[in-house]
Simulated scan of single mutants.
Amino acid sequence: MEKTAVLIFDAAQRSALAATRALGKRKDIIVYTTDSTESALAGCSRYTTKYLQGPDPSADTAEFLKWVNSTVRKYEIDFLLPVTEVTSRTLVEHRDSLPPCKLPFSDFKTLLDLSNKTALTQLAQRLNVPVPFSQYCESPADIDWQQVTFPCVLKPALSKVLVNNQWLETQVHIVDTQQQMEELLNHKEYLLHYPFMVQQYIDGQGAGIFCYYQNGEAKAFFAHKRLREKPPSGGVSVLSESAPVNPLMKQHAKALLDNVNWHGAAMVEFKVASDGTPYLMEINTRLWGSLQLSIDAGVNFPALLFDGEYQQVTPLAGFTEGVQLRWLLGDLDNLYLQLKDSKSSWGQKLAAIGQFLKPNFSNRKHEVNRLDDMGPFWFELKHYR
């Protein structure tokens, strides 16, 4: 059988490892992985045929694209799968300059419009998808201070901005006072010179809908809930569980992605207020950190992305709920932070230890350490700090 060569980028990411395992197990695919370091997480997987060190796209776009061109030709790559925003935006923007190969994304304008939080919020308002009250600003001079209530959120339109062939990373800020807000506006380059929003702060729980679309048609949805995060107050998921898809959030996600005729994977993020209203936060037009959980639960997004470039994909009816995914070293970090927290009582710390040690053999899987592919875990353990 002739195999299709796939190049998976951003091999340091756990999502790249999940994609490598999902595609590398197939008999019709040969997987190459790449990142800018000498070795990387997904590059240590037994399902990687060869790890290739390349230039960092965030450091030099031109050099990165030159390397991709030569690599695609040398290894006869037919399918490219980036998993971070910088790599995916770079490849999609310069798709026409690459040798012919599959790239499972919509066109660059659509990608940018969904990634641009200002444009997305305005689209949501037109489609009656709930969003926080927002002021749209090209510069700090555009702020109407009479409409600002604290706490509020300073949200740059783009999470990353390309400036002089290099990427400037922005940050969302929750602001409690006018003085704090003025200091940020005066010192953060991405607030001084690039568009941003001043948004109403929504006090609630984060939630997301994970989607796959093929040429404007919804084919798969997935959802999970976070059981533990790093840091414990909220951050990266270290223990998560597949959960039912919220019908209202699915309706809003569908309205947005249908409108732009989306193609590929997307994560639509909401914050659910105390009254149950899901407010749109952003859309990530790439694969996500807990990708392995969806694969374990029966929604193999990397396979959908691959197959969707070559044939019509059958819509998935559902997935297994209650499947858990644990990132062991991330969970260890969570425990350490709880034990270190001076505000936690001894009772709370003992409870945290008990939860960490409590086994779950029936429906829990580990994200990195898997018996059939332990190379990535030894790599992660070696570099653990």
Results as ranks from 00 to 15, higher is better:
G216M: 06
H187S: 15
V198I: 14
M181K: 05
S242V: 01
P156Y: 07
V272L: 12
Q166C: 13
H173W: 12
L185P: 01
E229M: 08
Y194N: 13
Y190S: 04
A220Q: 03
D203K: 05
V161N: 03
H187E: 15
F222G: 05
V198F: 04
S240G: 07
F221R: 01
F210C: 11
F210H: 13
L227T: 04
C211D: 05
T170D: 08
A220D: 03
S242T: 01
T170L: 02
D203C: 04
A220L: 06
N259M: 08
H187M: 05
R228W: 02
N259G: 00
L239G: 05
G264W: 09
L162S: 11
C211L: 13
N284V: 12
A223D: 09
A255L: 11
Q178T: 03
F150K: 03
Y194L: 14
H173A: 00
C211A: 12
N186Q: 15
D275W: 14
Q200R: 09
W262T: 10
A273Q: 03
D203Q: 11
L239T: 04
P232D: 04
Y213C: 08
N284S: 12
G206E: 10
D176K: 06
M197K: 03
M249Q: 15
L248S: 11
L248I: 13
Y279A: 01
L248C: 08
K225Y: 01
G234C: 03
D258M: 05
E217R: 08
T277M: 07
W167E: 01
N215S: 09
M267S: 09
I209H: 06
D275N: 15
S274N: 10
Q171H: 12
N186L: 12
V238C: 09
